[in-house]
């Protein structure tokens, strides 16, 4: 594994749905140990860009490169095992299973035990311990035995993040992790992301609307608008740039330029 490569790169990444170009030739490199916020108005292609990186969508054109290896043609599970982890914008869990079992399944995938037909799942105590450790981190341990479908929305969001942490990937992709959470729950998740960021081997991509969150967490901001990358740089610079003021905050360029 050559260290000189950025951990993740996209080259000219493009996807077309009929005549509509949802992600338009986005070239971007993400360095190890950084947190990049991806911003843009609704429909700018942020989630679609995520889907192209994690493999739910296949690119019409361009490449996704992880650690110098082209993964554009790989399936979702292959990319996951290579180290790309994803938390979804719309909560996306295993509803009839318990909270503990949801996380345990992730630990089991990591331990590569999915094809073990003969042992008892509950005899792998280390997987259960790992699951409970992660649940303690997201403050869900007291609800470990509950069925997911019975959880309140905020707890489901926490579990969504727990699944990603349990996966322990090199690249963590958060798609609006705090959306729909109550005010007192948001800091739990933000602290977790902060802790993950402190681990210099991890790279975090974060789609987020809350500007204060981005200011505190992000090392860098990239801005998508109509599928194209329109700005890229340090948070302070990008937030104040004319193009962001217009595209993201909806102000007119002239006003922003004067203000």
């Amino acid at each position: 594994m050559a260290r000189e490569h950025p951990i993740l790169e996209t080259h000219e990444l493009t996807i077309r749905f009929g005549g509509h170009v949802a992600v338009d030739h986005v070239s971007c490199a993400f360095e190890r140990g950084t947190l990049t916020a991806i911003v843009g108005p609704n429909g700018a292609g942020k989630t679609t860009y995520f889907n192209l990186i994690s493999g739910q969508l296949r690119a019409s054109h361009g490449k996704v490169v992880l650690n110098g290896q082209d993964i554009t043609r790989m399936s979702v599970p292959e990319r996951t095992l290579k180290g790309i982890g994803r938390a979804f914008q719309l909560t996306n869990l295993f509803p009839t299973l318990t909270v503990r079992e949801n996380v345990r399944l992730v630990a089991q995938a990591r331990a590569n035990l999915g094809l073990d037909l003969f042992s008892m799942a509950d005899s792998h105590v280390e997987l259960i311990e790992r699951a409970e450790h992660v649940l303690a981190e997201v403050r869900l341990l007291d609800k470990a035995s509950q069925t997911v479908s019975a959880l309140p929305h905020g707890d489901q969001r926490k579990l969504e993040v727990a699944l990603l942490i349990a996966l322990g990937p090199q690249v963590l992709m958060f798609d609006e992790p705090t959306a729909g959470m109550s005010v007192d729950e948001v800091p739990v998740i933000l602290n977790l992301i902060q802790e993950l960021k402190a681990d210099k081997d991890r790279t975090i991509l974060l789609v987020e609307h809350k500007m204060d969150v981005i200011r505190t967490l992000a090392d860098r901001i990239i801005v998508l608008h109509n599928g194209a990358l329109v700005a890229d740089g340090e948070p302070a610079t990008v937030i104040n740039s004319a193009v962001v003021q217009e595209a993201y905050l909806g102000k007119r360029v002239t006003e922003a330029a004067h203000g």
Partner: peptide, 28 residues
Amino acid sequence: VRIVNSPFGRVLKAVRDNGFRAEAIGYK
């Protein structure tokens, strides 16, 4: 009974519940 309670059996339930997410945690 052993098969459905094995690690493999647990993945089957995950696939039943949400095949899309099962893929995103690494199960084909």
